Simulated assay, not measured.
Amino acid sequence: MHESVVKAESGHVFSGPTGLGTSAARLVRAEPPPSEGSAERSAIRVPPLHCPDAVRDDPALGEEVNDRLVAWAAEVGLFSGRLERLRSHQFGRLFMLAHPDCDDPDRLLAAARCGLAEWAVDDHWVDEGDDTTPELLGPRLALTHAVVDPVRLPARYMAQFEQVVEREPVLRAFRSALGHLSGIASPTQVARLRHELAVMFVGYSQEAQWRSSGRTPAVWEYLLHRYENAFFPCMVLIDPIGGYELPAHEFADPRVRRTYLYAATANVLLNDLYSMHKEDPTDTNLPNLIAAEERCTLQQAVDRAALIHDELMYTIEAEAAVLSAAGSPQLRRFLTGLWDWMGGSKEWHATSPRYNSPAAQ
Rank of each mutant, 00 (worst) to 15 (best):
G77M: 07
R87N: 12
R107A: 13
P240Q: 11
G183F: 09
S38I: 09
M313H: 07
E63N: 02
E84L: 07
Q209C: 12
R113E: 14
P34R: 07
G92E: 12
P34H: 06
V70R: 04
I316H: 00
A325P: 03
L27D: 08
L69M: 13
L246S: 09
V5D: 13
T132K: 01
A159K: 01
P329Q: 14
K7P: 05
Y222P: 03
H124L: 13
L153R: 05
G337F: 04
P358T: 05
S213L: 11
E31G: 15
L153D: 06
I238C: 08
K7C: 06
A306L: 08
P52N: 06
L83G: 07
T315Y: 07
T22K: 07
A350R: 14
A359S: 15
W210M: 07
Q160I: 08
R175K: 10
R167W: 00
G242Q: 14
A24I: 14
R68H: 09
I238F: 02
H249C: 05
D340C: 04
L307V: 06
M158P: 00
L94W: 06
H277S: 14
A198H: 10
P139L: 10
Q189D: 01
A305W: 05
A198N: 03
D58H: 13
I238V: 15
T259H: 03
G37L: 13
K7Q: 09
I316L: 05
G81V: 01
E293R: 02
V6L: 11
S4M: 10
P52A: 03
N288P: 11
P358N: 06
S324P: 00
G115R: 02
V190W: 04
A359R: 14
L108S: 09
G243V: 05
G327R: 01
R152T: 12
M276L: 15
F161H: 08
P247E: 03
P34G: 10
I44G: 06
V6E: 13
